[in-house]
């Protein structure tokens, strides 16, 4: 069953077609890779799904509902969380606060509750703190919860973005280059964490990633785009050796495999 499906989605910037008639189906419960060379339109696809850009044509169905053209906050509240390629943390706020911000579903108390500090406010705060502590634990950030997020090392910032996104209790998590800037040890750890997200929290994960050992190691299905169009789709073993994919990455006539089987 598909959780998210894009049908003939189009996004044009001036004269540039960033996404052209893209069909994309993401099965519920999968770990799904979206790859392609630089400028292929991967981040644009994320931005169209999450409402940052409105699609110029086509349909986006999520969990039985058409969400094309919704505002970002509405898409997020509906169950699609994301991280950003160029990390966008709330830098002067602590690690814990960053995660708590995304806890809108846990938060019912209004402004007056906050001002008068009533029981409902206290209850909400406790629930937010508890949930964010659990997620920080999951992403190995528990000890850093009091630190300013802007002062964390790069890899931790990326993991914090994931923890923050999970606070939304998403059905679908879009990770935009989660392994960028990580060393191989951190990347290996990340692979395990992504699997845990799916297995323990039941989140469907889509990742855009250039680190092929992460993509091939963790994704069950991979969709390859170039110039805003699908060029291949399938399990990692077939995508890896697909001539069109190799041509897009390495140039015409290349014969190799994207990652030597390890």
């Amino acid at each position: 069953m598909s959780l998210l499906s894009l049908e003939r989605v189009k996004k044009v910037f001036g004269g540039l077609s960033a996404v052209r008639n893209l069909d994309l189906t993401i099965p519920a419960g999968s770990i799904f890779g979206l790859i392609g060379p630089n400028g292929a339109g991967k981040t644009t696809i994320f931005n169209v799904i999450t409402g940052v850009y409105k699609p110029d044509a086509g349909q986006i169905r999520f969990d039985g509902q058409e969400i094309g053209g919704w505002a970002p906050a509405a898409v997020a509240a509906r169950g699609i969380a994301r991280t950003f390629q160029n990390i966008r943390l709330f830098r002067t706020m602590t690690v814990e606060e960053n995660v708590m911000v995304a806890g809108h579903h846990l938060h019912r108390a209004g402004v007056l509750s906050a001002i008068f500090r009533n029981a409902r406010h206290a209850e909400d705060e406790r629930a937010l703190r508890q949930r964010s502590a659990e997620l920080l634990e999951l992403m190995n950030l528990r000890e850093l919860s009091g630190e300013l997020s802007g002062s964390l090392p790069y890899g931790s910032q990326r993991r914090l973005e994931i923890a923050r996104a999970l606070m939304l209790k998403p059905k679908l998590l879009l990770l935009d280059e989660p392994a960028a800037g990580m060393n191989s040890q951190e990347a290996a750890e990340l692979k395990k964490q992504i699997r845990r997200l799916r297995d323990e929290l039941g989140v469907t994960v889509v990742l855009v990633e250039h680190n092929m050992s992460v993509v091939m190691g963790v994704c069950e299905r991979i969709h390859v785009v170039d110039h805003g169009e699908t060029i291949a789709e399938g399990p990692p073993e077939t995508v890896r050796t697909d001539p069109k994919v190799l041509a897009a990455y390495l140039g015409e006539g290349a014969s190799a495999s994207l990652v030597p089987p390890s």
Binding site: T50, V52, A71, P72, A73, A76, A77, A81, R82, F84, R88, L89, F90, V101, A102, H104, H105, R164, A165, M167, L168
Partner: peptide, 8 residues
């Protein structure tokens, strides 16, 4: 932008 993506 990030705040919006967190349903704020």
């Amino acid at each position: 932008v990030a705040a919006e993506a967190m349903a704020t």
